[in-house]
């Protein structure tokens, strides 16, 4: 690898996770720059190798979450990069922007065929902030620039959103299966379809959806908040809970990687870096 890959983090008006997202990209061994929504020319000149749309409340979720940001001129450059095969990741509000721009599920490029609807939990409405487990859908991780390092085991990761329920224009498993990327499950990997294992009522327990090519990934959980093992809550069960306990007694909690780092390790490996 001659130069470090350059990752562009896009700041929309109302984004609020851009700085920690940029930090974890850098810690993962890549170069990262934050581009403001109106910095089209600098973004074009930089010609980044990958794009990340961070979490937040772009344009105050006016109309629908992500709907206004998806119409910003700067998104043309993201669409261009995506159709050229460059990896694009949308986290939370970034995922909402990708869905509203038609990049995901991307059955017909540019056509909006999914939505991230308001959470649907019996008796409860509004924002939900909690840790969940997700795992990669069978086969989705193979060769994927964002998922390849995750393997098939459930990983703990936090969600924090009010509108995170994937719905599709035609809720047809035959169409959605090839673009299903991450599913909510228990720490043992079971899917129940209902709260709290499925925290928002998402179709097929989906936590993340990609385009058919797999280079564009829209995920509701926040990998940058599970990047370090020390970010995990004390009560996390299963293998990752054991790793946390071991690091705590081993005195290396400050440096041990968390499950969220796997998304960025996948990207680094995609560019030929890291321990492949």
């Amino acid at each position: 690898m001659k130069d470090l890959p350059l990752v562009a983090v896009i700041q929309f008006p109302g984004s609020n996770c851009e700085y920690e997202t940029a930090r974890v990209v850098e810690v993962s061994g890549m170069e990262c720059r934050i581009f403001r929504w109106n910095q089209l020319q600098p973004l074009r000149d930089a010609s980044p190798d990958a794009f990340v749309l961070p979490g937040g409340f772009s344009f105050q979720d006016r109309v629908r979450a992500g709907a206004v940001a998806a119409k910003e001129n700067l998104m043309d450059l993201v669409v261009e990069g995506a159709s050229g095969g460059r990896p694009v990741l949308g986290i939370c509000n970034g995922a909402q922007v990708l869905v509203e721009s038609g990049l995901v599920p991307g059955w017909e490029p540019g056509r909006i065929e999914a939505a991230l609807a308001a959470n649907h939990v019996s008796g409860r409405s509004g924002y939900l902030s909690t840790w969940v487990f997700v795992r990669v859908r069978n086969g989705a991780g193979i060769g994927n620039p964002w998922l390849s390092a995750l393997g098939g085991s459930p990983v703990p990761i936090p969600i924090a959103h009010a509108e995170g329920r994937f719905v599709f224009r035609k809720q047809d498993a035959g169409r959605t299966r090839p673009v299903e990327a991450l599913a909510y499950c228990s720490h043992a990997g079971e899917e129940s379809g209902v709260y709290p294992l499925n925290p928002n009522g998402s179709f097929h327990n989906l936590a993340a959806v990609m385009n058919p090519e797999g280079n564009v990934l829209a995920m509701m959980p926040h990998p940058e908040r599970a990047f370090h093992l020390w970010q995990l809550p004390p009560w996390i069960p299963g293998e990752w809970g054991d790793r946390r306990s071991a690091a705590l007694s081993g005195g290396n909690l400050g440096t041990a990687p968390g499950p969220g780092s796997l998304f960025f390790r996948s990207l680094l490996e995609h560019f030929g870096g890291g321990a492949a």
Binding site: N16, C17, Y19, E20, R23, V24, G55, G126, Y127, L128, S129, T130, P158, A160, H222, E224, R225, F227, W230, Q231, P233, P234, W235
Partner: peptide, 18 residues
Amino acid sequence: WSYYDSEVQGCTRFRPGE
């Protein structure tokens, strides 16, 4: 607390209640 985002900015070690 389930309504509050306690982790934005990525610096949180212990959330409320832990």
